[in-house]
Amino acid sequence: MSGNMNLTLKVWRQKNASDTGRIETYPAKNISPDMSFLEMLDVVNEDLIKEGKDPIAFDHDCREGICGMCSMYINGRAHGPNKGVTACQLHMRSFKNGDTIIIEPWRAAAFPVLRDLIVDRTALEKIQQAGGFVSVNTGSAPDANAIPVPKWNADEAFNAAACIGCGACVAACKNSSAMLFMSAKVSQYALLPQGKAEAKMRVTNMLKVHDEQGFGACTNTEACEAECPKGISVSNIARMNREYAAAMLAGE
């Protein structure tokens, strides 16, 4: 087909967690600009399999930007060059014929590489499990307006809840800090009446686990917000900083 591209991929290959790993170069031939980035990798993998080589291992599930699995660092940016999209939503029309594309896994002490581009993001789940929930059963959906929630709070909580736990914020942060992820989880509950009751406990427990998991400290570079596919705002981090200080320094 006309308009198809030939590209060069430089991909991180690593057999398992203990392998040192290296960058290897592969051609990506006859790639349609309408393909998604993952479809392009599928094509390359088919070629690799035909040649009797190991296909490139990468995480993916929904391929529509909602599961947060497709973690990859493309040409020096989390999820590639476009704003507000995951790697699975990135289309090959964002690249030009003849381009060289560097593909690396997320890099963080808290995200060990399991194989090629696949990293273990359990550390984010540990943070979530430390407090990212409401303990009591809040029953079935209540009648509308039974619990008054200001529109602004509802919107902010909803925006924070859009986080898909992809880890791009950690990957893009020079400190490998998971503050944006954590602050989204803290905010989505702290803003709503059902979550308020446990707000103090939640933020202290979650931060403790965040630090224990080996994530870095936030220095407000705001790279996370720029790279987050769901547009989570750093104002959530400001809220979390407030919540945490209030929980630790005020009262009891």
Binding site: R107, A109, K174, S177, G216, T219, A223, A226
Partner: peptide, 30 residues
């Protein structure tokens, strides 16, 4: 202390990092 701790949080660096695309130079070089 923080610079050192934050370095430890990323033991392996990116080969092709384009950090200036997402954060200001001064914020990354405090």
């Amino acid at each position: 202390y923080l610079v050192n701790k934050n370095r430890q949080a990323r033991p392996v660096k990116y080969a092709g990092a384009k950090s200036d695309a997402s954060a200001s130079w001064s914020s990354r070089n405090m």
